[in-house]
Design a protein around this nucleic acid. Structure first.
Lengths: 212, 212
DNA sequence: GCGAAAACTGTACCGACGGTGCAGGAGGGC
DNA sequence: GCCCTCCTGCACCGTCGGTACAGTTTTCGC
């Protein structure tokens, strides 16, 4: 019971690192068992096949991802009352968190899965889709709060704006890896932050009678 | 001579489609030769190993990619004299081109390679990096032209701004695929377009004495 | 139309890998 | 002492990437 969970976690740790570096197809079960010091039979005791390993890997990754976003943006919410300022701070905190990682972001399993789609069953693809939809809901909710207070300078769809956050993170990871510049991702998030700031900056005409 | 090139191209076509759906590791040589109607020996006549196939695949993809950007942005330059308007039109044209693809963007090999890095040799990783650097130079040049005429509302590094275009495209592809919403990518490009428009919109204070 | 090079085919083989099946054993909890 | 969880060991299968190499057809230059 306790021991089993521990071994399972160890396999998942090793597998996650390997998959993010070489993809699912490039990661062999034999290399995983060699590194975890388990036998092949032991591996198949925990996971029926590679597909089930992928499923467990993805679900764990998504959970962890959600936890990190929860922490960052609830912390930002505590520090700032205004929804826009809070969101901008959240992006700043996220950017700092990422630039503190010595080797950069290890890679996103959601992206890995979507470049592998045909190899996995529908369940995995659904979980992947739902993860992205959860991001959309998360950031979309924040933008709705912002829009209740601020008028955007240009009309933009809330879902598309929310997706922009996910887009920049996923795209930033790709660029960081391709360029081998770990800081690119956090820089791109800060560029997005500037864009969002600009979008909700009050117009001169909205400041009628206001002194600052 | 002529025939050889044709077969080679056919292999690359089949391989590209397969790799973009299943990744390099998930694509078997045996399935490629089955679909192209060639023998295994025939395959290895054209490509020494899988790594060389990947190299040829990536180089061809990058060349094609560059050609498409050349066409779109030189066409936009012909239609608009102002560098900002020309760039905004280019993004619009790119967005339209992508939304016209019935199944959405087939996926980016540069992203596929960067999620596979450890399996390939340095030459491929270098080619991948150079492709992203070429994008940076391309869009960076455009932003420099724009900044010679317009003052950005917020100070932004030209390289980082240029990378933002690549970031949105790469991230947009990931989201499109994960969500199975082919239009997401072109929508995200239009959101970026709005951001760029906002960034270079003249301030009220810059319009002193100007009537419009 | 001939010769040489280019573009293959066929066959046999290798080690690594994903996966199956099953028998058995160590260790802890009741 | 028994059962259940958590493994190990072993034998085996088909697929895959890759090698080696001999032989054959196709194509092109002259």
């Amino acid at each position: 019971m306790r021991k089993g969970e521990e071994t399972r976690t160890r396999i998942l740790d090793v597998a996650e690192a390997a998959v993010l570096q070489k993809g699912f197809g490039g990661t062999s079960i034999e290399e995983l068992i060699a590194e975890t010091g388990i036998t092949k039979s032991g591996f198949f005791y925990h996971f029926r096949d590679k597909n089930e390993l992928a499923k467990a890997l993805l679900n764990r990754y998504i959970e962890n991802d959600e936890r990190i976003y929860d922490e960052i943006f609830s912390r930002a919410r505590e520090l700032m009352d205004d929804p826009l300022q809070s969101f901008l701070l959240g992006l700043k905190l996220l950017s700092e968190l990422l630039s503190d990682l010595p080797n950069g972001h290890p890679g996103c399993l959601v992206a890995t899965v979507c470049y592998y789609e045909r190899l996995f069953d529908r369940e995995i693809q659904e979980a992947n889709k739902n993860a992205v939809l959860a991001w959309r809901r998360r950031f979309g909710g924040m933008f709705e709060e912002i829009m209740a207070v601020y008028t955007p300078r240009e009309p933009l769809d809330v879902d598309q704006l929310a997706d922009m956050v996910s887009t920049v993170i996923e795209g930033g990871i790709v660029l960081s890896r391709a360029l081998k510049e770990p800081n690119s991702l956090s820089e791109q998030i800060l560029v997005l932050r500037t864009f969002v700031k600009l979008l909700f900056q009050p117009r001169a005409s909205d400041l009628n009678g206001v002194r600052h």
